[in-house]
Simulated assay, not measured.
Amino acid sequence: MSSVSVNSQGRSATFVLVHGSGSNAFMWAPVQRELALLGHRSYAVDLPGHGFDAHYPVAYQAPQDLDAWAAVPSPLAGVTLRDNVDHVVGVVRKVAEHGPVVLVGASLGGTTITGVGNAVPQLVDRLVYVSAWSCVRKASPVEYMTEPEFGASLLGELAALNVGDPAALGVGRANYRTADPELLAALKAAVMADGTDEQFLAFLNILQPDESLAVMTADARGHADTWGTIPRSYVRLSEDRSLPVAMQDRLIAESDALTPDNPYDVHTLRTSHTGFLLDPTALTAILTNLPL
């Protein structure tokens, strides 16, 4: 097999990059720059309701009115995992006209790329999970969050970041514009402990506050006869305190048990949940040398 950049027919691949919860295509800019310098095509997706379609009410701005913001309806409340999958399938259909497709998902983006693998396995040449949810036994990330392997996650310490009633809003709403130093320190420890305070705040300011509960709780399991037929890789992030490495390893093991003839190709980076963005050369080196 040749490297992922060119397949056996001499056609170069396109990397389709899918973000996680509360994020958008902007997060992939460091990775895309490195891929471009190496001569590779990439397409960073904005999932429905993300990017320039994100919802930033006036009450979220400064000075903030948290009580008012807690009652503001969110357009993301109607967004489902199927909406995300259908959107990315449309992207994959277009880029597949130009050669092989390598579909990369980070964090919650793993549920979307799994759904795409179920829907159009013939159009995806490799799936890559970057510390991402790859569900096969339990239906959703929320179900896995009660398991012992998730115990090292620091996300549970961030309840004070939440605004409004998720059940009533239909979204998880996080105040990423908080100025509370203790809350900011806890959030940094959870998502970017290996960055400077300045880097962490810069990352925080590209995030959007709402994420659909329906996406996080939908059945996101990969199926052996569709998703399970696609070659796949997992990039473990050993210092991740959002999706702990013990849970990453469980997800890998369960997937490999489902498709023992098509196990994960596993790589490890010593970074936090988003630390791979601070020095993207390590991730791009993995991506551009995967077998295709």
Rank of each mutant, 00 (worst) to 15 (best):
R250A: 06
Q248C: 02
L278V: 03
H267W: 04
D265V: 00
N262P: 08
M247C: 12
T271W: 09
D261T: 14
A246K: 14
H267G: 01
G275H: 06
R250C: 07
L251R: 13
D249N: 15
L243N: 11
S242R: 03
E254G: 02
R270C: 13
H267E: 04
P263H: 09
V266H: 00
G275I: 10
H267Q: 02
G275S: 10
A253W: 06
P263K: 05
P244G: 15
T268I: 03
L278I: 05
A253D: 07
D265H: 02
A253P: 06
S272N: 04
L258C: 08
F276I: 00
L277C: 05
L258D: 03
L251V: 06
L278Y: 05
S242G: 12
E254T: 05
D261A: 14
M247D: 15
R270L: 15
G275F: 09
P260M: 03
D265P: 00
H267I: 02
D256R: 11
G275T: 06
P260W: 02
P260Q: 04
G275M: 02
Y264E: 14
E254Y: 09
A257W: 11
P244E: 15
L277F: 14
Y264W: 08
R250N: 11
S242K: 01
V266T: 00
R241M: 13
L269F: 04
M247W: 08
T268V: 09
A253Y: 09
A257Q: 07
Y264K: 07
D261C: 08
V245G: 01
Q248D: 01
P244W: 15
